[in-house]
């Protein structure tokens, strides 16, 4: 569940009654989370800001349709994720779908980079260059995997919440998360082994 800055629950009734102060409170509680989510998916601050604004404009517009079956945060994340994927489609002209026919593929069976880089000093692991490399590795994940790793590992949603946001099964969330994590581990292993001459 998302941690909010204030514990008092947002009143859905007040939101539906057009209470501006309550909507401002909703925005204040969730805007950073939505911005981080958008930034990780679209990869640049300008598009992330567009996604942020469109998310809350759509939330305001569609509040009367919100049936309360999911939590407000899950609903907001669903809107934000869809907006971010729309930006990817627009910018890259790519077909970006959350449906992935390769969910059961066996690509985890490729040779693994087995280099023990955990022993490197923390300042090396957290260096600006390593962070930039990791950011690039995340941005280069296929959108279907990137969205899952962002929601589940970075934003801290549960497997169930992630499945609700993306409207896919919990098993699909777990499979995609596993593939994403292993790809990122592989990327970092290659990076650290080449940078520091670590032996297999």
């Amino acid at each position: 569940m998302i941690n909010t800055k204030e514990n008092r629950p947002i009143s859905l009734e007040a939101l539906r009654n057009g209470d501006r102060a309550e909507f401002a409170r909703l925005v204040e509680q969730y805007d950073t989370f939505v911005y981080r989510l958008a930034l990780r998916i679209v990869g640049n601050p300008q598009d992330a800001e567009d996604v942020l604004q469109e998310t809350f404009i759509k939330a305001l517009k569609h509040l009367p349709d919100f049936d309360g079956r999911s939590s407000l945060s899950t609903w907001l994340y669903r809107i934000a994720t869809n907006e971010a994927l729309m930006v990817l489609r627009k910018d890259k002209g790519a077909i970006v779908s959350l449906d992935d026919p390769d969910d059961n593929s066996d690509d985890e069976q490729e040779p693994l980079e087995v280099v023990d880089w955990c022993c490197l000093p923390e300042e090396t692991l957290m260096s600006a260059e390593a962070k930039e490399y990791l950011d690039k590795a995340i941005s280069e994940l296929p959108a279907t995997l990137r969205v899952v790793v962002v929601l589940r590992d970075i934003q801290g949603l549960s497997t169930r919440e992630t499945s609700e946001v993306l409207n896919i099964s919990e098993m699909a969330v777990k499979t995609r998360l596993s593939r994403a994590r292993l790809q990122l581990r592989q990327s970092l292993s290659s990076y650290f082994s080449h940078q520091f001459g670590l032996e297999n």
């Binding site: 805007d31 981080r36 942020l52 692991l125 790793v149 590992d153 994590r181 990122l184």
Partner: peptide, 23 residues
């Protein structure tokens, strides 16, 4: 063991670096 350790560390690293992102 190395794969498990580096997998855990990978997750920790991108969680730590993402937490630093402020709006």
């Amino acid at each position: 063991r190395i794969v498990v350790d580096t997998l855990r560390k990978t997750i920790t690293l991108y969680q730590q670096t993402s937490a630093q992102t402020e709006m």
